[in-house]
Design a protein around this nucleic acid. Structure first.
Lengths: 336, 336
DNA sequence: TTGAAAGCGCTAACAT
DNA sequence: ATGTTAGCGCTTTCAA
């Protein structure tokens, strides 16, 4: 049925002008109760739903934002996406989803599409663009907010978790448990915050006067976490701080396969606190990202900007994570 | 800034009419090479990107589809969403995301929003709408395709996995391993295909001449899977078919907590084959849904319909799942 | 091969 | 309180 009722149909049926229909429906201007009723009735009878594309053309705003995510399949990102969508909805904004996929080229293409669709603003979550095409980001003709990742000195509205501090907390927790030889499963540079988290581990280890952590590189996923673990065991670490929960789950699996008990022989800490972290075996001690807050911050600041607020071009805002201690960490062998 | 170049700017700069610009850019009609070049140059210089909202108003199609999902955070759905988005993108369609959240009312509201946004079609994935508001679905003025769930006799384009058969395969696998007392972790009726899967378990058990399965109700998530497991153990089952992988993960956890070994004492089978299923401890034997195929089928049939194809109003198409045997299943005690 | 002009469905001056 | 009208940025007849 392309035969959807237009405002003109409603106007005709209720015997008023389209302007009146528009006003009644928006409630912007008072109307005589009788007219009001007639218009409302006509609209209902015709099952009239105003075309937001016509409205968008006129108002020059679509009330839509774009959401760019590298991989919606990653549990942390899908939680973030849910938060973003939900808050956007609260504010009357729709969300068009641009899932990154493998390459940065595709993300750029997606970006152009979003712009052609005239989204009012864009939320970018840990995209490849962030690092590889920072200059492109600055050229985007609509407000942008970066979540969970940073382009230094870009002046782009940014909110992240305090990654470095979070990783430090995780590591301090291990150290407090008596671990002296700490391993870190890192992630490639194209993963969000990989270097900050690595730094955080180093900070803690150095702060405690221990020797530098053993670092093995994963891929940010379970498989990489599993394969990185071997090197860590060989190096004799008793505590592992993983780049994220997925990597930690890989480590858990690898450890189990090798007959290494967790946390008796080796402790493992993750990062993110995805839903499943509470259900691994043993349940994963991890650094919880304030996912909902990140999403809310991002959308609400974007909405402010769309409302004309000029952002203080400040430095990235960073929200504090929180250590959630579960069963995958325990005292080092021979410690307290 | 809001000062984006319009087709008129391009026309002025290249000294032709807007009609010519439109034609050159769409390539629909041949133009003199020289004109062509001038137009292209102007467009490039001005960084012109046609407004798809103006185009949509004129053409009366937005080249956008709506995606309704109950919970994007559920790994199976996020995988499906990725598939859907990706195929839609292939066909030049954008995706606006409507994440269901808790209640059906919200989904209805989302639906209206999608319609106002004039999406050309809608993909509905296991939504609450499916069961509670079937009549509303039929009233949607754009083509709809249902994925992974069915509204019987609705004539709505539908693609699902062969849930019943899949559950039967899972159960047969257990039976073949010598299990005689089968348990099933079910899901509430508002979860997709919960009754079909339960039926499949029953089919297999009866087919083998065993007594009816013990059914304990979960909630479709990990927590529910874990709490349902107790009753199953008490009933003395040695093989558990879970509604889905999340429930199975819950079962794994509960079993572990009770000191029941998997698969030595009890075997567990999941459903979906989410990414993490391969990484549980032990790795989960499960029924793999053809997720990508579901997504592709849905989008491509929707696109066909948008192109004017009139669907054969047939019965739901169902795609075959496949049993993936991993470590969570083994011979029953005292069996072969 | 190109231009002029109408019109998609709304909203917002500007009148009355 | 309501109507008239212009116009948002495109595409597409219809003419030339």
């Amino acid at each position: 049925m392309s035969g959807r009722a237009t405002i003109e149909d409603v106007a005709a049926r209720s015997g008023v002008s389209t302007a009146t229909v528009s006003r009644v429906l928006s409630g912007s201007v008072p109307a005589r109760p009788e007219t009001r009723d007639r218009v409302l009735a006509a609209a209902r009878d015709l099952d009239y739903h105003p075309s937001s594309v016509a409205r968008a053309l006129k108002r020059r705003e679509t009330r839509t934002m774009g959401l760019v995510v590298t991989d919606i399949t990653n549990p942390f990102y899908s939680q973030l996406a849910r938060a973003v969508e939900s808050v956007a909805h609260e504010h009357g904004y729709g969300m068009v989803l641009a899932n990154g996929g493998d390459d940065a080229a595709r993300e750029l293409e997606h970006l152009d599409l979003l712009l052609e669709r005239r989204v009012d603003g864009i939320v970018i979550v840990s995209s490849r663009l962030t690092r590889r095409d920072a200059h492109r980001l600055r050229a985007i003709p609509v407000p942008v907010v970066l979540v969970n990742d940073t382009v230094t000195g870009s002046g782009i509205l940014t909110v992240t978790t305090a990654h470095r501090h979070g990783a430090r907390m995780a590591t301090d927790h291990l150290i407090l448990l008596g671990h002296r030889r700490i391993g870190h499963i890192g992630a490639p540079a194209d993963q969000a915050a990989s270097s900050q988290r690595r730094q955080g581990v180093r900070d803690a280890v150095r702060g405690a006067g221990l020797e530098d952590p053993v670092v093995a590189l994963g891929d940010g996923g379970v498989a990489g976490g599993a394969s990185a673990t071997g090197a860590l065991i060989d190096a004799g670490v008793t505590g592992i701080v993983a780049y994220n929960d997925l990597s930690a789950i890989g480590a858990l699996r690898a450890l189990h396969r090798e007959g290494v008990r967790v946390p008796d022989d080796v402790s493992v800490v993750g990062f993110d606190d995805i839903d499943l972290a509470a259900w691994t075996d043993p349940p994963l001690t991890t650094v919880r990202q304030p996912t909902d807050d990140l999403g809310r911050w991002a959308v609400e600041h974007l909405v402010d900007r769309l409302g004309g607020a000029t952002d203080p071009a400040g430095r990235p805002v960073s929200l504090e994570p929180r250590l959630v201690v579960r069963g995958s960490t325990g005292p080092a062998q021979g410690a307290v």
